[in-house]
Design a protein around this nucleic acid. Structure first.
Length: 478
RNA sequence: GGCCCCAUCGUCUAGUGGACUAGGACACCUGGUUCUCAGCCAGGAGAUCGGGGGUUCGAAUCCCCCUGGGGCUACCA
């Protein structure tokens, strides 16, 4: 099995999903998973994309057994195969210029004819050929497709697919710059690398008859083909830039967990016959089967992925989750680059309180900000609703006074003390809890108040209560 | 235009001739838990299986046509 991406840009969800399915299949059947970089188009090569591909695979835990191989380093092999086909009459040199080809296509389009090479050079006589060769004209090597009959192959997912040979033109195998096209390179490598199952995207179906004919011409054993359904954007169009983040690395940055992404991607276009959606990596390997692969394209909708990520975040042991969140906190300057054990301990307790609200690791910043900052930003709505209550100033004074002497400053005592204040004030507990939350966090939503106060610690809480009291008194004067 | 692939709730999907008053999940709505949110629990709404013909005692499941969507149609992959 192999995953053979082309380094023409940052890998997207679809590319990685193909890698995942291939990997799953290889692991399930004890096969060898090979990474092969199809860098045969020098013009479209994007610097750094190979690294991104490898980083993405590693991040997801898709380890490869061999490679990466680079097709650009195997040029002589492809030429050898192409020449062999020329010798056996299955291929020929074509000297047509790009200009002629373009003109030909224009005419065909104008005449509403199917476009394609007219095979002119296929029928050149030896003398004509020798003459052109003598001039040193550049050439490509084209495969000579059978002129009649049809090519039939059995797709592991879709069953039998057939194409009429006459409709397939003599495609280029070797370009004039000496590089192979995809067709030549992949067939050659798949054969030499002992690939038994070619698993790739649906967009390759129409190229498969060419590959089949090459195998036949070369006398090579045919691998099995499996064409995965495509992944479309919410507008049912092929995934592209305007669909938001389609680049895989962006998901990594936003704080998706590899476990969640793995699980989600495995279920995009594949399913086991059971009412379940949460699977571990091992369970997926155990269950994966080409027969469970969907034939119709799937629309990529991030909502379910987001939900699943939340599930996996909540399942994470808190120590691990804290380590995962740390980089985000540091980037936001909420934590220093080299935190002390005490600071990590504090962050961990904070994260434990907010974890169930987190769907992305990056959300740790907006979610926990107020635990770390010296000065709070108050939510306008909360201030208006709660700081205007007549009893609030008195309430804050009482809380400050009692918290100051409260020992130990723990959950149980904080709760008892706070509720006692409500009783004395003759109001419901909620009437105290809500304004206090605003005073202490600046917000109207968040974790349970008493837990929050306990984690913040006495000093920080007192300071915030005083600040709130000051603010209310100022407001009263105006 | 030509060739090819595909078609079940908004989305991911289960379903391979009778167990289907079409199941699950996300999202959505309601109720419960509770100091808010989230979480959790319970419930609800949501698909005449794209349309039309067949085959059959019986079709989401098989066949044909139509429609729709997608892919390919490069010296790109």
């Amino acid at each position: 099995m192999r995953f053979a991406p082309s380094p023409t840009g940052s890998p997207h969800i679809g590319n990685i999903r193909t890698a995942l399915f291939t990997w799953l299949f290889a692991r399930k059947h004890g096969g060898v998973f090979i990474l092969r970089i199809e860098d045969t188009d020098r013009a479209r090569y994007v610097e750094g994309s190979v690294q991104e591909i490898m980083d993405s695979l590693r991040w997801l835990g898709l380890d490869w057994d061999e490679g990466p191989y680079f097709q650009s380093q195997r040029l002589p092999l492809y030429r050898e195969v192409a020449e062999k086909l020329v010798k056996t009459g299955h291929a020929y040199r074509c000297y047509c210029t790009p200009e002629r080809l373009e003109e030909l296509r224009r005419q065909q389009e104008a005449a509403k004819q199917p476009t394609g090479y007219d095979r002119r050079c296929r029928y050149l006589s030896d003398e004509q050929r020798a003459k052109i060769e003598a001039e040193g004209a550049p050439y490509v090597i084209r495969f000579a497709m059978p002129l009649e009959g049809e090519t039939v192959f059995h797709d592991q997912i879709r069953g039998e697919i057939r194409f009429e040979n006459a409709l397939i033109d003599d495609f280029v195998m070797l370009k004039s710059d000496g590089f192979p096209t995809y067709h030549l390179a992949s067939v050659t490598d798949d054969h030499h690398m002992g690939i038994t199952h070619v698993i790739r995207g649906e967009e390759w179906i129409s190229s498969t008859p060419r590959h089949v004919q090459m195998y036949l011409a070369l006398g090579w054993e045919m691998p099995k083909f499996a064409h995965l359904p495509m992944i479309l954007g919410t507008d049912r169009k092929k995934l592209s830039k305007r669909h938001g983040s389609v680049q895989f690395v962006e998901y990594i940055q936003q704080g998706y967990l590899p476990e969640a992404m793995f699980n989600f991607l495995a279920l995009l276009g594949w399913s086991a016959d059971e009412d379940r959606e949460l699977y571990s990596r091992e369970e997926l390997i155990e269950r994966f089967d080409l027969s469970g692969v969907q034939e119709n394209p799937a629309i990529f909708d991030g909502q379910k992925l987001l939900w699943m990520n939340g599930v996996y975040i909540r399942r994470k042991p808190i120590e691990e989750l804290t380590q995962l969140c740390l980089p985000y906190l540091q980037q936001a300057r909420l934590m220093p680059p080299d935190p002390t054990p005490q600071q990590i301990e504090y962050a961990q307790r904070v994260i434990a309180l907010e974890a169930e609200r987190m769907k992305l690791l990056s959300e740790v910043v907006p979610l926990t900000e107020y635990f770390f900052r010296d000065t709070l930003e108050y939510e306008e709505k909360g201030v208006r609703k709660w700081f205007t209550q007549p009893y609030v100033a008195q309430m804050l004074e009482m809380l400050i006074e009692r918290y100051t002497t409260l020992e130990p400053f723990d959950l149980e005592h904080i709760e008892a003390t706070t509720r006692a204040v409500a009783d004395e004030l003759g109001v419901g507990a909620a009437q105290v809890i809500h304004p206090t939350r605003v005073a202490v966090s600046g917000r109207t939503v968040g974790p349970g108040l008493f837990e929050m106060i306990e984690v913040m610690g006495k000093e920080r809480v007192l300071q915030r209560l005083r600040a709130a009291l000051e603010m209310i008194r100022q407001g009263a004067k105006d």
